[in-house]
């Protein structure tokens, strides 16, 4: 059986801003459809830059990058981005925030409403469409941000440490919800995080990056079957893998330039 073509394909990619130092050096990384890849590593190792390159917000200095077979700037319709902050427009209601990307695409109002209701239901925020962002909790705001990203029915979802600012319990809940949504929506995910537990819980592949310049240090596969639940975190195999990833991460941080 032949392998499906990669949906994201970095080959010997490097990135430098102006005359500054290399941010990413010689990155080769491919993602197959359906992969959930967590990028983890010390600050400054270029994790967020990888997402910006895929999204077309930033362009490579050398090497190649294909997103669904296209140059990143041509593949905008294929992907959606969830930022570290909820990045909601405070003057718009939850419903209007979710419709924003569709509005920019000139989608018909009836279609917008239908999709809005579907994604609000996915993130379990039915009934909150009329609220303003400042009336929501941190976790709810992040759910809205995810719902807005899902409104585009993306093939690739880029998540830049979306739960980093939340308390641990809310983060665990949202991790479980994210996986539950993924059971219904077939996107490929690139997930930047500083939490080893979160990376192990969510991903099927963990890419550990080193800094100075940013590069892949090691990739670890996570073979726990989906769906994963809160119970998965308590299994000895899970704890063992968390310990292994932590050890690798510590070894990377100890050799920081």
């Amino acid at each position: 059986m032949s392998m499906p073509p990669p949906i994201v394909d970095f080959q010997r990619a490097s990135k430098r801003y102006g005359e500054g130092p290399l941010i990413i050096d010689d990155l080769t990384l491919t993602a197959s459809p359906g992969d959930f890849i967590s990028l983890i590593g010390p600050s400054g190792c270029g994790k967020s830059t990888v997402l910006k390159l895929i999204s077309g917000l930033s362009i490579l200095t050398t090497g190649t990058l294909k997103v669904n077979g296209l140059a990143p700037e041509q593949a905008a319709r294929e992907l959606a981005y969830v930022f570290q902050e909820p990045t909601l427009l405070p003057w718009l209601t939850v419903g209007k925030n979710i419709e924003l990307l569709m509005q920019l695409d000139h989608s018909a109002p009836a279609e917008r409403t239908k999709i809005r209701q579907r994604v609000l239901s996915l993130v379990r925020l039915d009934g909150l469409a009329g609220r303003y962002p400042r009336q929501l909790s941190g976790g709810q705001k992040m759910r809205v941000s995810i719902a807005r990203a899902l409104s585009r029915s993306p093939r690739i979802l880029l998540l830049d440490e979306p739960f980093g600012a939340l308390d641990e319990m809310t983060r665990d809940h949202l991790n479980e919800e994210l996986l539950a949504i993924r059971q219904q929506e077939a996107w490929t995910a690139f997930f930047v995080t500083h939490s080893v537990t979160e990376a192990v819980f969510l991903s099927n592949r963990i890419v550990i990056m080193a800094a100075g310049p940013g590069r892949i240090h090691e990739e670890i596969s996570v073979n726990f079957p989906y769906p994963r639940t809160a119970e998965t975190r308590h299994s000895p195999a899970f704890q063992e893998l968390v310990a292994r990833v932590s050890r690798v991460l510590r070894s990377v941080e100890e050799v920081l330039p």
Partner: peptide, 8 residues
Amino acid sequence: DLFTMARA
């Protein structure tokens, strides 16, 4: 960035 990504 959100608007740029959405090709607004």
